[in-house]
Amino acid sequence: MKRMVSPLVLLGPALAWLVVFLVFPLLLIFAFSFFQRGSFGQIVYDPTLKNYLRLFNPTVLRVFLHSLRLAAFVTFIALLLGYPTAYFIANQPARWKNTLLVLVILPFWTSYLIRTYAWIVLLNREGVLSRLLISLGLSREPISFLYNDTAILIGLLYGYLPFMVLPLYSAIERLNPEIREASFDLGATPFQTFFRITLPLTLRGVVTGAIFVFVPSLGNFFVPELLGGGQRFMIGNMINNQFLKARDWPYGSAMAFGVMAIVFILLLFQAWITRRTEQS
């Protein structure tokens, strides 16, 4: 078939689409990030580095660092919850494996917005949890569990946990069980075997899963908005505000490229880990 269908026919439509509606828009906001906001929110084509310098003002920096910390924490908890689960699924008999895996993925394919809403119902002042505590006599008055970092953390964790389990699962599943048995046979305890054999060999899955959780957590804006009540800002909210409220698109674009820089560094790290584990 090689010579018989032109590559242009196969790759052409999709690549053209991506160039026009992905590459060009990204280049456009990259360009925007070097211009200035006019007094009516329009873009004044007057080159400047001001927008990037403004990323380093204390308020913005604090939001960046706070978002990074929160996303890192979400990732860490997702790893703690996800690894044993992936390990458990991978070691089930074949007919169960698939079902259990589908059950993990299924929520991911349903509306994240609605799943976030479910947590509002659970955590708000008049919500299920608050009432439960009152009826158990643990609290005398309604308590809101919303509008704090913990609520955001739960919301992000809830949304992105499947992203952690899937790559971990495929890494663990690929492991030859005899490698573990060999380790036991050579006298290592299960604990030693896990940290010296299983974990290093599934490191790629860990890194992939971590990136898949960390990146979208960092950029999410509706979870902080809905569960954080707009009180607790993350990067996504700032970008959102610059575009839809303050109408300072150049500044918002610069923030976006701040995020992209972080993502890029993480992907380089992942590529490095992948290369390293492939070599050994």
Binding site: L22, L26, L218, G219, N220, I239, V259, M260, V263
Partner: peptide, 10 residues
Amino acid sequence: IIPDIVLAIA
């Protein structure tokens, strides 16, 4: 891979 907010504003 790109955060959806970035794609959205672009």
